[in-house]
Design a protein around this nucleic acid. Structure first.
Length: 155
DNA sequence: GCCAACGTTGGC
DNA sequence: GCCAACGTTGGC
């Protein structure tokens, strides 16, 4: 597969939002329990890659800022913890089924670029996040889309 | 809270 | 391997 250097990563702000990342500076992106999303982390993400931080399942869903991949995929140990919300008995330290990356805070946009606004731009029509029924929590973003959205954020 | 869309599970 | 049932996601 091609190796995109740009991504979009969803999180519910009620659980973990951009303000939390701004406070923590670096945080493991745990709890991914979808094979496609895991494979993007495993096969695609490299240190230094950038990603949009997307707030989902909230009052105003949309892109709120930028983060950076600071550690490449490694086993998600929350899958081994019976106390964890993300516990998966099929995963073990010997054979980890799920992975996570560490992300670092880069910036918060002056204002959210809402899903509704993203939909208004023809240049972004191909984005995975805008497709009907999209549920994938990690998706690649093209260089063109990245630049376009960064410009939106500055305007 | 509703529900459409999707991924996963498990019976056969 | 098929596919119905189920659980989850996430916009609205």
């Amino acid at each position: 597969m091609t190796k995109p250097a740009y991504w979009l990563m969803k999180s519910e702000p009620n659980t973990y939002g951009i303000d939390d990342l701004a406070r923590d500076a670096v945080e493991p992106w745990d709890g991914i329990r979808n094979y496609q999303a895991r494979n993007f982390m495993r096969d695609g993400m490299k240190c230094g890659d950038l990603a949009f931080f997307y707030h989902s399942n909230c009052t105003v869903p949309g892109i709120v800022g930028i983060l950076e991949i600071v550690r490449e995929a490694y086993p998600d140990h929350t899958a081994w913890d019976p106390e964890s919300h993300y516990y998966d008995p099929r995963s073990s330290a010997d054979k980890p089924r799920w992975l996570m990356v560490d992300v670092g805070y880069k910036k918060t946009f002056p204002k959210i670029i809402s899903l509704a606004e993203l939909r208004q731009h023809e240049a972004l029509a191909e984005m995975r996040i805008l497709q009907k029924g999209n549920r994938l929590s990690i998706t690649p973003v093209s260089r063109e889309e990245w630049d376009y959205i960064c410009k939106l954020a500055e305007s």
